[in-house]
Computed example of a mutant assay.
Amino acid sequence: MIRHIVLVRPRADVAPEAWASLMGRLDSVVDALPGAMTFRSGSNVSPEAGMGKGYSEAFVVDFHDAAARDAYLVDPEHVRIGERLVQMAQDGPEGIVVVDLEIGS
């Protein structure tokens, strides 16, 4: 399984409703893709002050395997959402961190 983790430092002027709408669109994309298992998004609620380095929003997508993740990465709607995500992030792509973990054997 591949766990795709994305952390975002949103711009201060991004309305919570705009963020929620974008996450809803992304959830719909994930739901429609073969091999995509789960989508979760939310705000950082860690009590460890300052450890989030301003990355206050995050989402996680679990895929059966790397092939399913790779199909997601090139999906046209995912690409459009990714472009919008970059626009909403503080400092564009510098305000986004992506980590993929291989889970299990």
Results as ranks from 00 to 15, higher is better:
Pro10Cys: 10
Pro93Ala: 14
Ser41Cys: 14
Ala66Cys: 01
Val98Gln: 06
Arg9Leu: 03
Ile96Tyr: 01
Glu83Trp: 10
Pro93Glu: 13
Arg69Cys: 02
Trp19Asp: 13
Val60Leu: 07
Ala20Trp: 09
His78Val: 03
Asp31Trp: 04
Arg3Lys: 12
Gly82Met: 07
Ala15Arg: 14
Pro93Cys: 04
Pro76His: 05
Pro10Thr: 09
Ala18His: 15
Gly42Arg: 10
Ile96Phe: 03
Met88Cys: 05
Ala12Val: 12
Gly54Ala: 09
Ile103Thr: 12
Val86Thr: 07
Ser56Leu: 12
Val74Pro: 01
Val60Lys: 01
Ile81Gln: 03
Ala12Cys: 05
Lys53Val: 01
Met1Pro: 05
Arg3Tyr: 00
Leu26Tyr: 01
Arg84Trp: 04
Glu17Ala: 15
Met1Ile: 04
Arg3Ala: 05
Gln87Val: 10
Gly92Thr: 09
Ser28Asn: 07
Asp65Glu: 11
Leu7Asp: 00
Ala68Ser: 12
Ser43Glu: 15
Ser28Glu: 11
Glu102Trp: 08
Ala68Asp: 03
Ser56Ile: 09
Tyr72Lys: 07
Met23Ala: 14
Asn44Ile: 06
Arg84Phe: 03
Pro34Arg: 08
Arg3Gln: 07
Gly95Met: 03
Met37Asn: 09
Gly95Asp: 05
Leu33His: 08
Gly50Lys: 12
Val29Gly: 00
Ala89Val: 08
Ile81Pro: 04
His4Cys: 02
Ala66Gly: 03
Glu94Phe: 01
Val60Ile: 13
Ile81Glu: 03
Ala15Ser: 15
Leu73Lys: 04
His4Glu: 02
Gly54Asp: 08
Gly104Leu: 10
Pro93Val: 10
Gly92Met: 10
Ala67Ser: 13
Asp27Glu: 15
Lys53Cys: 05
Asp100Leu: 07
Met88Asn: 04
Ile2Lys: 07
Tyr72Arg: 04
Ala67Cys: 05
Lys53Arg: 12
Ala32Arg: 13
Thr38Phe: 04
Ala58Met: 12
Leu7His: 01
Ile5Asn: 12
Leu33Ala: 09
Met51Phe: 13
Val60Tyr: 03
Arg25Tyr: 06
Thr38Val: 09
Phe59Leu: 11
Gly24Glu: 14
Ile103Lys: 07
Val45Leu: 14
Ala89Leu: 09
Leu85Tyr: 07
Trp19Asn: 11
Arg40Pro: 00
Val74Glu: 07
Gly82Trp: 02
Leu101Asp: 09
Ala89Phe: 07
Val6Leu: 02
His4Asp: 06
Phe59Asp: 04
Asp65Pro: 04
Arg84Val: 10
Asp62Glu: 13
Pro16Glu: 15
Val97Ala: 08
Val60Ser: 04
Val99Glu: 05
Glu102Ala: 14
His78Glu: 05
Asp62Ile: 05
Val8Trp: 00
His78Trp: 03
Asn44Glu: 14
Leu22Gln: 03
Val60Asp: 01
Ser21Asn: 11
Gln90Lys: 14
Gly54Val: 08
Val45Arg: 12
Gly82Asn: 06
Gly92Arg: 14
Ala36Phe: 00
His4Arg: 03
Pro47Thr: 10
Leu101Asn: 08
Phe59Lys: 04
Met37His: 09
Ala20Gln: 15
Arg80Lys: 14
Glu17Val: 13
